[in-house]
Write a protein that binds this DNA or RNA. Structure first.
Length: 511
RNA sequence: GGCCCGUUCGUCUAAGGGUUAGGACACCACCCUUUCACGGUGGUGAUACGAGUUCGAAUCUCGUACGGGCUACCA
């Protein structure tokens, strides 16, 4: 087993190609929890070796997402650290040396095949029985590389500055084994490993080389990534074995995939558009296509709820507990309770988490976010004390932050729309009279608390020989504009005597 | 096709050889509430299949089926 002599250093390494999806955030989260749990460091490294797909602004976006989630790295491109650089592109010069070393030691070779030649190879060897031919031991001798060419020719090509890549040369007949923290021992036969490109023609490393070199140089002790990386793990193990020795290698954990809610397969951003939910942490606008993909933040999720929901998608503490703060997650998290199987994402359950968090969060804490969401709906709030009372009153009926606008707009502005149909059919002179007198009574009443109002209202109803129930709905519509909201007397208390009377009179005038 | 990984209610999951297979979301019913929610009570609903090991299997082994991932000079 891995000697835990060095400090735990886990890293999250996104590629800045745009957006940070659910699986990505969960990977960061597990990294973060593991690091905190063991008093280690959580490192962010940017994998920007593919310049063609690099998207401006994506790196900043990733940092913003992490900050919103409360998962700020100890070391990152922005913050720096003792094991920099934290962007792969800035380490470009070093990768080549490691690749050359592998060639010298006979573990890799030069390949001069052009993209067209590779394409031609894949076309000509493609059969129904073998739909995707590999550049591997079966084919490499028929390609143009330093193994098939004679040494003089290779030398000549190299001297002439012919573009080349460096490919790995997997051992003939061995079994590569490693222990995955989640899956236990996993093994691959080397005959099934193809000659992956390690160093591209532009001198940049591929992920395979870069991840190994970076993890070594940055002293990474644990590396977590999605399950889609499992098939290329043997390449990385081999590289570790040759370059730095397996005793230096991080412990691996391949996280289960997050699947689409309907059907099967990996969750993609397309699924979000199709099914009406976000798949990114925050809104992301691709500067190339100008296309925006929705985020959980903008949809009105609390970061605590978002993180809580993600943590439980593939992990639990063994009990029935489902609500965890980040701090509690840090205390409870363990990699051996992470599941092996993928989990379908369920937006309904995600909303449930948010609802629970809204209900359990104090109005003072909720206030800034609610204020923002109200402002976005054109509802200005001057009275902060009132706002807190309103939040306390309506939060249990809000699932997403924007729900606060619908649920509490009438506290701050008189209703613009009135659901007349809820009242008109049963309206009559007796009721009109009742409310006229109610206004008078409310003007005179001494206390303006819930019980005062209810007592007055019910006594008057009795005096007018109308059931209170028949009057409560009209009263609600007068104050709220519709058939919804908290208790009517609670509402009246909060909007105050003057405003209550104004809304009643206004209604009476219009009906 | 090849290689690898996986499989408990519709969904997320608990149960590490002995439980009436538990909880949550969703759904349904009832209660609370003279609004809408919240809440409460109850209900429908699962160990993919077949062998083997064992007194006893969701749990261990093997096979089958099904699902997924990978199969780029992308990560």
């Amino acid at each position: 087993l891995h000697p835990m002599t060095k400090k735990v250093r886990v890293r999250f390494a996104p590629s800045p190609t745009g957006g940070l999806h659910l699986g990505g955030v969960r990977t960061v989260l597990y990294n973060y929890l593991f690091a905190r749990r063991h008093g280690g460091d959580f490192i962010l490294r940017i994998e920007d070796t593919d310049q063609g797909r690099f998207v401006p602004g994506a790196e900043e976006y990733i940092m913003d997402c992490l900050e919103w989630c409360g998962l700020v790295p100890d070391e990152s491109p922005a913050r720096g650290g003792a094991y920099g650089p934290y962007r792969q592109s800035e380490r470009k010069a070093q990768y080549g040396q490691y690749a050359e070393r592998l060639v010298k030691e006979g573990r890799a070779y030069y390949a001069f095949d052009t993209p067209e030649e590779l394409d031609a190879m894949r076309q000509s060897y493609k059969t129904p029985a073998n739909p995707s031919p590999q550049y591997d031991h079966t084919l490499r001798n028929r390609m143009r590389n330093s193994l098939s060419l004679d040494p003089a020719e290779t030398e000549q090509l190299l001297n002439a500055g012919t573009p080349y890549v460096i490919r790995i040369l997997p051992p003939e007949n061995e079994t590569v084994r490693f222990v995955d923290m989640i899956r236990g021992e996993v093994s691959f036969h080397t005959s099934g490993i193809d000659d992956k490109v390690l160093l591209k023609a532009d001198g940049m490393p591929t992920y395979h080389l870069a991840v190994v070199v970076d993890d070594y140089l940055m002293k990474i002790s644990h590396a977590f990534r999605g399950e889609e990386w499992l098939p290329s793990a043997p390449v990385h193990i081999l590289l570790w074995h040759w370059l730095f020795g397996e005793d230096q290698m991080p412990q691996w954990a391949h996280l289960p995939l997050i699947l689409k809610p309907d059907g099967n397969g990996k969750l993609s951003k397309r699924d979000g558009d199709r099914l009406g939910f976000p798949v990114f942490a925050m809104n992301w606008t691709d500067p190339k296509t100008n296309e925006t993909t929705g985020g959980f933040r903008e949809m009105g999720f609390l970061p605590e709820a978002f993180v809580n929901m993600l943590a439980l998608l593939g992990w639990n503490d063994g009990s029935d507990k489902e609500l965890f703060s980040l701090e509690e997650l840090v205390q409870q998290f363990s990699m051996d309770r992470v599941h092996k199987g993928g989990a379908k994402f369920d937006f309904e359950k995600a909303k449930w988490f948010n609802h629970e968090w809204i209900k359990n969060t104090a109005p003072t804490v909720l206030k800034p976010a609610v204020k923002k969401t109200l402002a976005a709906q054109g509802i200005g709030v001057q009275d902060d004390i009132l706002l807190e009372k309103v939040i306390a009153l309506v939060k249990e009926r809000c699932t997403l932050l924007p729900d606060f606008a619908a649920q509490s707009a009438f506290f701050f502005n008189a209703p613009v729309q009135t659901d007349w149909e809820a009242v008109r059919p049963k309206w009559n002179d007796k009721k009109q009279l009742f409310f006229v007198e109610l206004v008078r009574a409310f003007q005179l009443i001494s206390g303006w608390q819930h019980d005062d109002l209810e007592k007055e209202f019910k006594e008057m109803a009795a005096a007018h020989q109308i059931k209170a129930g028949e009057l409560l709905m009209p009263f609600r519509v007068m104050l709220v504009g519709g058939k919804f909201g908290p208790g009517v007397f609670d509402i009246a208390v909060l909007i105050g005597r003057e405003e209550t009377i104004r809304r009643i009179e206004n209604f009476l005038k219009q009906i």
